[in-house]
């Protein structure tokens, strides 16, 4: 089903030598899969992997995204030792997870940091689809809940970049309950008058779409991102009709009143910086 959405990100961006061993070097040129134009990799990095020719948004890792968001040297990584167990002894779950963890160089499908954007303190959580399609199990739920609780305690805004196939089925009911767990943490954060920006990136589906991704004070989505509750194939089989091409895209959701804004990744940082500044002034005058 959604597997084909993830393959590009799993493909290594670094070069292999003649024996097929990873050299760790990035190629000088990268081909845009959309307009087929050859692009300088360095230039592509500068534009946060948006094709300067056709505006195609390449998939990015959580590390690549976080790197451009925080003011240099301000990030403190949080909760990065938390990882999943296999509570239901689901066959092959651990071996697959370990392999993903190695590729992504992360312990779980979400990465959290506390840092500054243009001087404003913020907690950012970024999901990473390279680990089990970004699915949410107990560990992802715990990390996100703690991120909100940390922000509530320190009176900080939270930005969550969602990217997920949904709940992690291998953890059964425990994964479903993480939707509730993160929600109770969000409720407490919100009740404290703090800002939560949900930033949906490609793809945000299933249980993640149906929980924290959709309940920001401000709901943003990245240009072209696929966002939806049920999968396209499931819907087509249920209603027995073909869905339009733009169904469940960020633009489709905007049109249907589900989003505050669709953001081009080139404007991601400035958009967030502006929103944060407008809210942070509110906090400062509080009690004056």
């Amino acid at each position: 089903m959604v597997i084909d959405l993830f393959y590009k990100l799993n493909r290594k961006r670094t070069k292999l030598d003649k024996k097929g061993i990873d050299t760790g070097d990035k190629p000088i040129m990268t081909k845009c899969p959309s307009c087929k134009k050859m692009l300088y990799t360095k230039e592509l990095e500068k534009s946060v992997y948006v094709c300067p020719n056709c505006d195609y948004h390449f998939p990015v890792t959580s590390q690549e995204r976080m790197k451009v968001l925080f003011d240099e040297g301000t990030e403190i990584r949080l909760f990065d030792t938390i990882t999943s167990r296999n509570p239901l002894d689901f066959p092959n779950y651990m071996s697959k997870l370990e392999k993903d963890k190695e590729i992504a160089d992360l312990n779980e499908a979400v990465r959290v940091g506390h840092g500054k954007i243009d001087g404003v303190d913020v907690v950012i959580a970024t999901m990473d689809t390279r680990i089990r399609m970004g699915s949410m199990g107990s560990a992802v739920g715990e990390i996100l809940a703690r991120a909100f609780n940390y922000a509530t305690e320190k009176k900080l805004p939270v930005i969550v970049f969602t990217a997920s196939g949904g709940a992690r089925m291998q953890e059964g009911i425990l994964s479903l309950m993480q939707m509730a767990k993160v929600s109770v943490a969000i409720e407490r954060h919100s009740n404290a008058g703090l800002l939560y920006i949900a930033y949906m990136t490609h793809p945000t589906t299933g249980g993640v779409s149906a929980s924290f991704a959709s309940v920001g004070d401000i709901n943003l989505a990245e240009k072209g991102a696929l966002i939806g509750f049920a999968g396209r194939r499931v819907i087509e089989e249920t209603i027995r009709e073909k869905l339009p091409d733009d169904f469940q895209t960020a633009e489709f959701l905007l049109e249907h009143g589900q989003l505050d804004r669709v953001v081009n990744r080139k404007e991601m940082r400035i958009t967030l910086s502006n929103i944060l500044k407008l809210h942070c002034n509110g906090v400062k005058v509080d009690g004056v």
Binding site: I82, R85, A180, A185, R188
Partner: peptide, 12 residues
Amino acid sequence: FDKYMKIGDFVE
């Protein structure tokens, strides 16, 4: 809040 915070099985 406490009831839901407890749900989950992970290692740290």
